[in-house]
Amino acid sequence: MKKRFLLNKIILTLSTLSAIIGLGFLFWILGTLLIKGLATMNLSIFTHDLVDGGIRNLLVGQFVMALIATFFAVPIGVMAGIYLREYSNNGKIAFVIRNLSDIMMSAPSIIIGVFVYAIYIDKVNHFTGWGGVLALAIMMIPIIVSTTDNMLSLVPKELREAGIALGGSKHKIILQIVLKAAKVGLMTGILLSFARIVGETAPLLFTSANSQFFTFNLNDQFPSLTVSIYNLATYPDQESKDLAWAASFVLTAVVLVINLGGRYLTRSKHK
């Protein structure tokens, strides 16, 4: 009899312990970033480019690539999601595409980099910003598809029926009723997937590569914050390591703020 209760206590304590371990690592990592990042941070890194010991070009470059990727991935992803949920009647094609899209979402990101290298970088023979954009967009599309698919499934059937009763054509119902009803959820999904791709490194390593200089020329090597962190962290001198810490702090802060912002958006809607 007593053994049962003892076992119960042990297991529940262990489970609490694992939660503490998880939180412990979170605070350890964030704490390290905060201390190291703030210690090495000064305003001049935001006004100088990598060549002068700053991160201005890197920050701009990383955002430009992620934003353009979003610009292409969102319409394609949302339209594909609309097809799956509104047009396909849940047939065989929809089943296949939906699951393949999910599988692609979990595919190793370095593979996307290798793929874009083969179809594009290898052909033009030098690294380009567009390569980075393409890799990030390919990563983002399945995430957007899955979000759209889920969010549209939450829109009540009655709303669509009301539209039909008013004599609306299918695409008008989708554009003016269904998408409007799912707007907040979609926005959240887009924000979260943006937060995910903006912190990616592996797909950029041999597509955009990196650049020391400020540029908007996507036909040339393009500055990337994450690739720079990878390079800087392995240089032997302390100055580079410090800059890597400052850059990591900025990157994590941006990613977490967007992430929390996205969550707040959905929460405030349900209140």
Partner: peptide
């Protein structure tokens, strides 16, 4: 715990 998943992998590497 979910924020732990949002941290970019390169940060895990550096840390």
């Amino acid at each position: 715990i979910e924020l732990l998943a949002a941290i970019p992998s390169i940060i895990y590497g550096m840390w």
